[in-house]
Design a protein around this nucleic acid. Structure first.
Lengths: 250, 250
DNA sequence: CGTATGATTGAGCCTACTCAACTATTGTGG
DNA sequence: CCACAATAGTTGAGTAGGCTCAATCATACG
């Protein structure tokens, strides 16, 4: 396997064998790049939905505006993620996309998936699977964000981010940078910035977490999992039904 | 096109041309049937995830139990829906499935998708698209259920159900049967049965809806759309990027 | 040093929840 | 056919948790 610097190939090869043909198909998805600055609006709901994006670097988030003026952050994206699966079905964007930090996106057209669907059923199945997993994670997130206590909501969010970062960075332990404002966090878990602040202070006093500069340290990860009923959806992946050869990996 | 009695074929042919080969592939997914009674538990979270289901008749819903003893209804399923896309990624179920009414399910194995992925890219793209749309609808639902007022939540739910029923029943107007208890409804939109009752009474007094026996009538659909910021995700489907021939239909 | 952004803390309020009683409806067995 | 039980829906009273509004503190940057 050519050890390219592609996040996408790196991420997908976690799950299934990729031969050279596969890698060439995937490399096409990353052929163009777009640099973005901190807090840049990439697209808005209602814009034509022509491209998907592969995240090369930086943090991004998808959000919608609420009728009452509020904001609802649906999903946070990290390097290696594909942005826009959910938009595949429509001609127009259903959410807005914004960068949280500076970073780099690789846009590719919907039609670039043609070739993959036609010639690479294994990758197709894998993309399908990743989309399915994303859906479950979104359900989990919104379950936490809509029906649990503030502490549990924040615990869930922190665990989710930590698990996600660990996929592409296996050296990561329990400390990571969190480049989101408390307002961003609140819009993600359905709280005001005020409640986020109060709750984080409280969690820190209880020794559940620690904050150092912009970093977060998860001190009692088991306890955090317990209070938020967190399931790591990256641990139970099933690739056994794929056509062709496949790894049975996490 | 053979006018079979398959809900699945009926639903999918709304979106793209299906030739005989396609229909045969799809018919395989409905070859076995399982009758279920009212309020029957079909599977539970943690069960092995071996089958998907196609809904032939009846109402079903997917739900999870919350740590505090509550219940969270994630998705309501109607005839023609495929249940379990989100489970494709895992070896075990992540949610529970229960029938709301008596009905009939057609279980098929994950591996039955093999043949489709290998030989029918158009159907693959279509399934992908439907999964993507489901994801957007779930996001919409949970956005409403977590961040809006009770009236807006219920307005959203009623509109969502009405739009969904209209897909397979084009004769339906603004009146439909709602075979869910107020507790079920509350667990779907994040309210207690008490709040559901109060809010429905209020909406009825304001002339927004009417209830006759177990039926609901949407009297001021525009107003309901307005207060819940409802978007009909069935109206903007994009099949233009599919490989092969395709209709550009709703 | 001054400004802007973000985080923290306090006070009061309001909405949806809890608890509880009561009514309506449905189904079942004597 | 009626009486009873079980389930579902309605209504009232009181509570509490997270929101709003507002002031203050912290940090970064020009």
């Amino acid at each position: 396997m050519s050890n390219s610097n592609s996040c996408l190939i790196a991420k997908l090869s976690h799950y299934t064998e990729l031969d050279d043909t596969h890698e060439q198909l995937l490399a096409k998805l990353e052929k163009s790049e777009r640099q973005v600055t901190e807090r840049e609006e990439i697209y808005a709901g209602g814009d034509p939905m022509t491209h998907l994006f592969c995240v090369k670097s930086g943090w991004f988030y998808g959000y919608t505006n609420l009728p009452d003026g509020g904001r609802h952050v649906v999903r946070i994206y990290h390097p290696g993620d594909i942005i826009g699966f959910s938009g595949l079905a429509f001609r127009h964007q259903s959410i807005n996309l914004r960068s949280a930090t500076e970073g780099c996106l690789c846009p590719f057209e919907k039609k670039d998936l043609h070739q993959i669907l036609l010639t690479a059923p294994t990758i197709t199945a894998l993309l399908f699977t990743l989309a399915a997993r994303e859906q479950v994670i979104i359900i989990d997130t919104l379950r936490a964000a809509s029906r649990m206590r503030p502490r549990a909501r924040l615990a869930f969010l922190l665990l989710d981010i930590a698990c996600r970062l660990r996929i592409t960075n296996s050296t990561m332990t329990n400390r990571f940078r969190l480049p989101l404002t408390q307002t961003d966090i609140g819009d993600t878990v359905g709280l005001t910035n005020v409640s986020v602040s109060r709750t984080l202070v409280e969690m820190e006093q209880q020794g559940l977490i620690q904050r150092i500069n912009g970093d977060v340290v998860l001190l009692q990860e088991d306890e955090l999992r317990s209070i938020s009923d967190f399931h790591d959806r990256h641990a139970d992946m099933d690739t056994s039904w794929f056509p062709g050869t496949s790894k049975d990996s996490n």
